[in-house]
Amino acid sequence: MLELRGLTRRFGTVVAVDAVSLAVPAGQMLGIIGRSGAGKSTLLRLVNRLVEPSAGQVLHDGVDVTALHGRALRGWRRDCAMVFQQFNLVQRLDVLTNALLGRLAYQHGLRRARVLLTGGFPAAERARALAMLNRFGLLAVALQRAETLSGGQQQRVALCRALLQAPRLILADEPIASLDPANARLVMQALREANRAEGISVLVNLHHLETARAYCDRIVAMQAGRVVFDGAPSELDAARLRAIYGLTEAELAAEAEAAAARPAMA
């Protein structure tokens, strides 16, 4: 179980995440919605410590994640894979190596030294990565540089990297916001599949309430860093939405669309 306790992050005078407390049982698929700037990205990045909290704690199965450092922190990041809106692949590395980055945290001692020195992974790891790429229809481009791929393909590579981490938790920050509908469906289904078949918990930031309703067990709505709704998708009806945001679902979706169209908002 993942537990956030009074989690807070300030950037100067902006309180990006404001005293958020949440408990996410293992195996849950949680959708997080909110308008641009609500603090969704910051919340996810607090969980894997890409951002340090100003106050509060993150606990996973009773372990205080916010106190980890060094090797233990690397281990935690391996256990909670992240999928980014902009994919965050290393553009000049080939697709196979990008996928293999998900296996980096499993290389220790001499093997780690060899991987760092030569950039080459053991054959068993390569085979494992190829099988994963094959599952997502990427075998044909495995030896191409990541920069030559389309956005949809890149996000599939990022998913392969995430799944190869054999994580217990996946943090997905607007994973489909830059994708066409077909790829968006593919990515959401893959997250759903990982959640259902392997019991991996998923925390996913989404622009569209509709998508959250279709795939998630539970929805959290954020506003100005705070959690303003937490419940089953069916509870978040038009009336609740209007009470929270003063907008209809269609207006909210249009706003999200506009925000996503703005170039490269992390």
Binding site: N48, L50, G70, R71, R74, G75, W76, R77, R78, A81, M82, F84, Q86, F87, N88, L89, V90, Q91, L93, T97, L101, G102, L104, A105, L116, G119, A158, R161, A162, Q165, A266
Partner: peptide, 21 residues
């Protein structure tokens, strides 16, 4: 580009991995 380095960090890469990959 910071994003690419962040991708390695998020996969559990330490400073050596972040520099190398």
């Amino acid at each position: 580009e910071r994003r690419q380095v962040e991708g390695v960090a998020a996969a559990g890469g330490g400073w050596a991995e972040r520099l190398r990959f």
